[in-house]
């Protein structure tokens, strides 16, 4: 499972980096979204990967049966998702505004030499 998760994080990050280096706002938004997916998975994995374990320790048991999973990364991921969601929404609005005001969707607001409107 560790290999699979790290592969997913790696591929998402690579795609994200490639996309944010593109010159148009739509790939930029997609790239940043992919990067935030990658980082959310990564944060989730920092608590060590476990399946079917409770995030709380039963105080009645002297020793947790079968271990427990770290609840903190889940809280961190939740925060990161909420913030990432808000930021993506803002960026999309800004990209639309830029499209309307600058007349094209290039991040520098200049049309390519090829396309004449």
């Amino acid at each position: 499972m560790e290999a699979l998760i790290s592969l997913i994080v790696g591929v998402l990050t690579a795609c994200g980096v490639y996309l944010i280096l593109r010159g148009r706002t739509f790939p930029l938004v997609l790239g940043l979204t992919l990067l935030s997916y990658a980082v959310n998975l990564f944060l989730f994995a920092t608590g060590r990967l476990a399946i079917g374990l409770p995030p709380i320790i039963d105080p009645n048991l002297a020793k947790p049966v079968g271990g427990y999973t770290d609840p903190l990364p889940q809280a961190l991921v939740l925060t990161a998702i909420v913030i990432g969601f808000a930021m993506t929404a803002f960026l999309i609005m800004l990209a639309l505004k830029a499209r309307a005001e600058l007349g094209n969707d290039h991040v520098d607001g200049r049309p390519d030499p090829g396309d004449r409107a």
Binding site: G16, I20, T25, L28, L32, L35, S36, A38, V39, I83, M87, F90, L91, L94, A95, K97, A98, E101, L102, V107, D108, G109
Partner: peptide
Amino acid sequence: RTRAGLHFVALNLAGST
């Protein structure tokens, strides 16, 4: 302002990641 803002926002989002 919009153009400068777009760059600023994109850079800072990458920084946050």
